[in-house]
Design a protein around this nucleic acid. Structure first.
Lengths: 345, 345
DNA sequence: CTGTTAGCGCATTCAC
DNA sequence: GTGAATGCGCTAACAG
């Protein structure tokens, strides 16, 4: 059951006729080593393809150079795009990432949180799940608070009241407003909002901004034009179907994300509506799907690179015990494609 | 720079008036501990929210309970779907995964390989990159051979001649044949194959099977109907465009993956061709995109769950020093959707 | 059942 | 510039 491996700095040291400390020195470059010995060591390292045991290093140095990333579902392009950028940024700073899919399950999420702490990650990036609950349970909150006693955590596009975590968030509210402006320019006054889940902050906040802007502009919205069957393509289909059954329909529909937009577009087309001629649709997140799903979905981009950069910078700053901004807001922008047009009816 | 943390089994032991060994015993359950003491320890563990240092455990036990997963790009649904399943299977067996995006870069791939070994992962799942090169360089091969001296590695849908790695592969050849059967039933005799990259085995092998079957059935194919501009949506657009410029066009086009299929469908439609009426198209990988991209793409499914299960089982078997099948073939199957129909022209 | 001891592999004092 | 000794936090003999 034990592993084979076996070659350590002691083996190298012995064969090179030096002390383990000297091997360590050539390995880390922490001090000069004279030439006859240095070469011998280097040669042996190559000969045995020796790789220092990072667990032992970490144990001594009290830093693992690992970062944990907790997210709900890597299958979702928003998360995969962001995770990739996070990994790239982390790698640049010498950190390796432990990616954890909570699979939308709070128990798994918590067990990963514990696991990451046990594994001595130097910091954690937390996405989705509990930090998107508008009203999280005490248990979820306590789990976060306890975790924060062990390790710095950066929350991306979420929050946890009472927990001392730093936040990086993209300006989704402004994204909504720009989208509404755009629809307004196209003459739309009857607008729906579909997808997402009540009680999840990313949905609740979008609905709030939506209602606020609609009222302020004096446009029409009906409660029955706001339906929320989740974040998936299927959810979008279902919500679009609800709208289709209504006597009075909106002329434009905003979707909580690109998946929902795709589902909605499919359903509308199935019922003979042309997009964008008969119905305008907007997405959110600006994933590659928005670009490539016909007719091309107008969507809000989260500025992924900048978002990832700020997230990792903040986390690493925290690890180095440096003071960091409590909350950083990343600007979003609208990518205009072909899913919105002048109102026809 | 040093971490705060600090509470260890020694602290717990002291405060509970027992030895560190006893704390360890209640932690691991490796031996019974009598009741007055046991409760005291448990209470303190809870009080301090104590989490054992897995690095120290691993160092002693010589197993990290970590698995490395190296893949080219988590953004690609094939990899994200598979990665998620692999993680799920690993989690069930008590392993945590280190996910590494090589970003299609051999140097990064190698550095991750080294990094994973240094980090003492118990095993590695290797996807894409060098193991998909039809003719890898000696350097790439040696990198793999050296890695195998340290840790068991399972290759998924790839190979590395001269390297003693176990292989799990899905029966892509049979998938191609079934797809060709299907097109044949629909009366297609003039068939193209687009996407991918010459020199990459997943492409080369598909082309080989394609040519072989076409010859054997006595159907038509022209070299100019085989174009390969990569694995992306853009690549699919480009290759479809090449076909559109030809005087004589195929009536059906097979695509190396679903991304390429989507790009091709977009381009064909842009030029006024109706899918499937004017042109039949097949995908590969059966990602969620194939399901949802209109009109729904007929594609080959890799049996992701089974694939992940076998991969993790084999790897963990190897870790336990058990004999494992050198090569395991996972059956594929065709998911029929609406992108193929009777030949019109 | 429980405490003492040693050692996993490494980096860093501290002498020399 | 180099070697010997120590300890990071934990588990597993080994005694008792």
């Amino acid at each position: 059951m034990l592993k084979k491996d076996g070659v350590t700095i002691y083996h190298i040291a012995k064969e090179a006729n030096v002390s383990p400390a000297t091997v360590s020195r050539v390995l880390t470059g922490s001090a000069n080593v004279r030439e006859p010995a240095k070469s011998r060591v280097l040669k042996l390292i190559d000969k045995y393809n020796f790789k220092p045991n990072v667990m032992a290093q970490s144990l001594y140095l009290k830093q693992s150079k690992m970062l944990g990333i907790i997210l709900p579902d890597i299958d979702h392009p928003f998360y995969s795009m962001l995770a990739k950028e996070l990994e790239r940024q982390a790698l640049e700073k010498g950190y390796t990432c432990l990616l954890c899919n909570s699979m939308q399950n709070f128990a798994i999420e918590q067990s990963y949180l514990d696991n990451l702490i046990s594994r001595q990650v130097d910091g954690i990036v937390f996405l989705g799940g509990r930090i998107n609950q508008t009203n999280p349970t005490d248990e979820l909150r306590d789990g976060m608070i306890n975790a924060l006693k062990h390790v710095p955590i950066v929350l991306v596009n979420g929050k946890m009241d009472g927990a001392d975590a730093h936040i990086i968030r993209t300006d989704e509210a402004n994204g909504m407003r720009r989208l509404l402006d755009l629809l307004g320019h196209h003459g739309h006054r009857k607008i729906g909002l579909i997808g997402g889940e009540i009680g999840v902050s990313s949905t609740d906040e979008k609905i709030e901004v939506f209602k606020q802007v609609m009222k302020q502009k004096g446009w029409t919205y009906k409660d029955e034009w706001i339906v929320n069957s989740g974040y998936s393509i299927q959810g979008g289909e279902q919500d679009a179907l609800s709208l289709l059954h209504l006597d009075e329909k909106p002329t434009a529909v905003m979707c909580i994300n690109d998946f929902v937009a795709i589902g909605a577009i499919k359903m509308f087309q199935k019922f003979g509506l042309k997009i964008p001629n008969d119905m305008s649709v907007t997405g959110f997140d600006d994933t590659y799907l928005a670009e490539h799903f016909p007719p091309g979905v107008t969507s809000v981009n989260h500025n992924y690179q900048l978002l990832a950069k700020k997230t990792i910078e903040t986390l690493i700053g925290l690890i180095a015990q440096e003071e960091q901004e409590r909350e950083t807001v990343i600007p979003t922008f609208v990518t205009v494609r072909n899913s919105c047009e002048e109102r026809q009816s």
